[in-house]
């Protein structure tokens, strides 16, 4: 990788302050408000090191969910939660009779690893559900919960079709990945993307990431990984049901259900209008019936 010319200027081994526009050096992206940023997570190069989980916890000062050892391969986090905003999933795949095959297709056919995160949907169901306006779309096209507005009603939690956002019973508010909103404002790329050693998590503008991802999928198909596909890019599984596309999208090699992802999530708020229409229509019918019955009762004698 060619070095960015600005790196020459910051050769000191101890830095007193963050580098200006550091994301240009670490991710090749100049972060500007008004553009659409997200993640492309290429699971074929994930090594399951969990640097992303640790970096996220460190930067956001999050406590560990004390769940001990789960016994589910190397996954000891379990799922995304109010305190876990990056979660690495592990799926070990064995062949016939539970014995792993000796020769396997390249790029992680025997052991799936995927770093799960908030998808930062284009039409986010959590934001549309939020009655206080705590959830909003930032100037970087990411979905963030304002901690000083949220009153913990918890309606965003069942709205999310991916099961991402959660309420913390301890501090009483909803939490999820902010795509390191504070780092973006300072010109730094998100902590998980910066710490990923294999560049499985790539940060950038969504349009660029999708192009890069499509080229990667074609490349993988040529190299024998026929099952590789994008999840969450426009017109792919995960970006269904009027959600638009997912700013944080993935390259997967097996069914979405294997990674605990829904193949066809939907935009929940599209159900509001049909439901209200049906309900109010029924109430109108009842009201007419009431008028008729009460009027008839009022006229007749006992």
């Amino acid at each position: 990788m060619k070095l960015h010319p600005r790196i020459q200027a910051h050769a000191a081994s101890i830095l007193e302050r963050p580098l200006p526009e550091e994301a240009e050096l670490t991710a090749g992206v100049r972060i500007e408000p008004g553009r659409s940023y997200g993640f492309f997570t290429d699971t074929t190069v994930c090594i399951g090191c969990k640097a992303c989980e640790v970096a996220c916890k460190e930067w956001n000062n999050l406590p560990a969910d004390e769940i001990g050892l789960t016994g589910d391969s190397y996954d000891n986090t379990g799922a995304l939660s109010a305190n876990t905003w990056r979660h690495v999933s592990f799926v070990e795949r064995s062949g016939e009779h539970g014995v792993r095959e000796n020769s396997q297709a390249p790029f992680q056919s025997g052991w799936l690893m995927m770093s799960d995160v908030c998808k930062h949907c284009h039409n986010p169901p959590c934001l549309e559900a939020c009655p206080t306006g705590a959830l909003f779309k930032s100037e970087f096209d990411t979905v963030v919960v304002q901690q000083d507005v949220c009153n913990g009603c918890g309606y965003c939690v069942p709205a999310c079709p991916f099961g991402v956002v959660d309420i913390s019973l301890l501090d009483g508010k909803a939490h999820k990945c902010t795509l390191c909103y504070d780092r973006l404002k300072g010109g730094l790329e998100p902590a998980c993307a910066k710490s990923c050693p294999t560049d499985s998590i790539q940060f950038g503008e969504v349009g660029d990431l999708v192009e890069r991802a499509r080229r990667r999928v074609d490349d993988l198909h040529r190299r024998g990984v026929e099952g590789a596909y994008l999840y969450g890019a426009p017109d792919t599984p995960g970006a269904t049901g009027d959600l638009g596309h997912l700013n944080a999208f993935f390259l997967l090699t097996d069914r979405p259900e294997v990674y605990n992802l829904p193949p066809a999530p939907t935009r929940a708020s599209n159900r509001v209008a049909p439901s209200l229409r049906a309900g109010l229509f029924a109430m109108a019918g009842f009201a007419l019936a009431a008028l008729a019955v009460l009027a008839a009762g009022g006229k007749s004698s006992t």
């Binding site: 930067w59 956001n60 000062n61 999050l62 406590p63 901690q147 501090d171 508010k173 939490h175 504070d182």
Partner: peptide
């Protein structure tokens, strides 16, 4: 030492 949202170190 550190304050982030509703959490502090």
């Amino acid at each position: 030492v550190i304050a982030q949202e509703g959490r502090l170190q």
